[in-house]
Simulated assay, not measured.
Amino acid sequence: MTEAPKLKSGRARSGEAGSVRTLERGLSVLSALAELREATLTQVAKKAGLSASTTYRLLETLRQQGYVEWEERSGLFSVGLRAYQVGAAFSERNSLLSAAGAVMQALVEEVNETANLAVLRGNEAVYVHQVEASQLMRMFTHIGAAAPLHCSGVGKVLTAWLPPAEVRRKVGDGPFPAYTPHSITTLAALTRELNTVRGQDYALDDEERELGVRCLATPVRAASGEVVASLSVSAPTSRFPKKNIPDMLGRVQAASEQISARLGWRG
């Protein structure tokens, strides 16, 4: 004789309902933040239709899990890398990662150097995809690692097209950390460098973050023309001398333009 299913107590059902309600509120906060891009606690609470105290508790929980980031200097919240990774799992045809994967693989097979794709998250450039080369000595970083904006190729590309006030808010007034003797350490020097990056449509990390390593980065654009990512190739200076920059630039730019075209850019 089949045993009848046991009914859960009212207290258990109440607890489950409370958990579901909390989850719903947490998702509404994350959705509000995604629309706002970067916002204060008050702005997120207003957008989500919740009290400031409830919104803060939810944001703090999401921050601890990596779904939200908080920039102490500005007091602004933004969507975190973990949320990006979850979203990336739902890979649509024209999403950034699916648009970039095959193109990056072809680029690495062509130049035999490691290629990386980075996006802007808060005040850092975060690597979201990588294709390694077969070289014995190869330049690589792990997915989710961050690079400073002032002395990395991807960081300079991702900030070059931002309004000056936003650049200053993200990097501060300086002086910036000097990773090598070649690192940019002042806001004035960085401003000049970003002007150059915009003018030439690429950035070079010429041993600025690590001695003996050169990195060339180009912008990836969405259909609107907005720079949404940066594609880069890094190599030891012994394999990537300055005389090879024009040739490497042509190859990396062609790849970034292919990715951009897959995202709908027609520039």
Results as ranks from 00 to 15, higher is better:
L216E: 01
P177I: 05
P181V: 05
A223Q: 15
S183F: 07
R168K: 13
A235H: 02
P164M: 07
I184H: 00
V171S: 00
A165W: 06
V197C: 08
R169I: 05
D201K: 14
L158I: 03
P177H: 14
A203N: 09
W161T: 10
A235D: 11
P236F: 10
P219T: 07
A229F: 00
S234N: 08
Y179P: 03
L158H: 09
D201Q: 15
V227A: 00
V171C: 01
P163A: 15
V233P: 11
W161F: 14
T218H: 12
P163I: 08
R214V: 13
A165L: 10
T191L: 04
G212C: 04
A178H: 05
Y202T: 05
P181W: 06
T185Q: 14
T159E: 09
T180C: 08
A235Y: 03
T185W: 07
V213E: 08
R192N: 14
A223H: 04
T159F: 01
T159Q: 02
P219M: 10
S183R: 04
D201P: 01
S238E: 09
A222F: 03
S238Q: 07
T185M: 12
A160V: 10
F176Q: 07
D206C: 01
V233E: 03
P163L: 09
A165P: 10
V167C: 13
L211W: 02
A178M: 13
P175F: 03
N195A: 15
Y179K: 05
T186E: 14
A229L: 05
T180D: 07
L216H: 00
D201C: 12
G174W: 06
H182S: 09
E208H: 10
R198S: 06
R192G: 12
A178Q: 09
Y179W: 14
A188P: 00
C215D: 02
V171R: 03
R221V: 08
R214D: 10
D201W: 08
R214W: 12
V228L: 07
A203R: 02
L204V: 15
A189W: 01
V233C: 13
V171M: 03
E207G: 04
S224N: 15
R221P: 14
A223S: 15
A160Q: 01
S183D: 11
V220W: 02
A235W: 00
V220E: 00
A229M: 04
S230E: 00
S232I: 06
I184G: 00
A223Y: 04
V227C: 02
T196R: 15
R214E: 01
P164H: 09
L211H: 09
T185G: 08
E207H: 10
T191K: 06
R209H: 14
Q200S: 13
R198I: 07
A235G: 12
T218E: 01
E226H: 12
E193A: 14
V197L: 08
D206E: 13
S230T: 10
L187T: 07
I184P: 02
R214T: 12
A217Q: 00
L158Q: 06
C215W: 02
E208A: 11
C215V: 15
T218V: 15
G212Q: 02
L187H: 06
P219S: 11
S232L: 01
V220M: 06
L190E: 08
R198W: 09
Y202P: 02
V220T: 07
F176T: 09
L231H: 06
G174M: 03
W161C: 11
E166Y: 02
G199E: 15
P175K: 02
S230V: 07
D173Q: 12
T237R: 03
P164I: 11
